[in-house]
């Protein structure tokens, strides 16, 4: 009888009903156009003066400690950030927590609230370079290898240059209704 039935034999969902980190689109709170990735003070000091580099690094490290996702189990952390990309940290409560690996920081000259733009960058799944800002996560590039040593293999995401956007979507705003029917 089952073979002749008109209903699906089984239904499984792999994406729906589960929550994860969703990468945000560039735009609001994304890195400014001139922002660059630096893995160390030495790296940064080739462009900016050492004192600036040190203060930006300290700022990024502090933001990382305060804002980076924290997990109580290593598997949960690795499910988000990929195998081998999580480090153990000491929690203030005394136990261990797991966090992604700080690889460096994005730094730009654009001022925000009187400060230089500076945000930590850590390693995400599949070699991506993830930068948090304003409660969102941005994919700013990728790393060529695994582990902390891969910081030197950073490749920036393709620069937005000749690309124009916003060429679709106007009609949806013109009509006060849904796209589907």
């Amino acid at each position: 009888m089952t073979a002749l039935m008109k209903k699906s034999r089984s239904i499984r969902l792999v994406l729906l009903g589960s929550a994860g980190i969703t990468l945000a689109a560039c735009g609001d709170d994304g890195p400014p156009q001139d922002a660059q990735f630096y893995s160390s003070v030495a790296d940064c000091a080739a462009v900016y003066d050492t004192a600036t580099c040190e203060s930006v690094k300290a700022e990024a490290e502090q933001k990382f400690a305060e804002e980076a996702p924290k997990f109580t189990r290593k598997e949960e952390c690795e499910a988000e950030f990929g195998p081998g990309n999580c480090e153990t940290q000491q929690a203030s409560s005394g136990g261990s927590i797991f966090m992604p690996m700080l690889m460096g920081y994005m730094m730009g000259s654009m001022l925000s609230g009187g400060n230089r733009f500076a945000q930590p960058v850590y390693r995400g799944a599949n070699g991506s370079a993830v930068m948090p800002n304003g409660g969102k996560f941005f994919n700013v590039g990728s790393f060529g290898g695994t582990g902390a040593g891969a910081a030197n293999s950073f490749r920036p995401a393709a620069q937005v240059s000749q690309v124009s956007r916003g060429g679709f979507g106007q009609s949806a705003r013109a009509y006060r209704t849904t796209s589907g029917g």
């Binding site: 995401a157 000749q162 956007r165 060429g167 679709f168 979507g169």
Partner: peptide, 26 residues
């Protein structure tokens, strides 16, 4: 759909990777 980019030759996503196959609920 608002985020789809055009680089002069092809459609691209927000990381400027080409969009070769597009499902649109639009």
């Amino acid at each position: 759909v608002e985020d789809i980019g055009w680089d002069g030759r092809r459609f691209v996503d927000l990381e400027n990777r080409p969009i070769d196959v597009l499902f649109k609920l639009y």
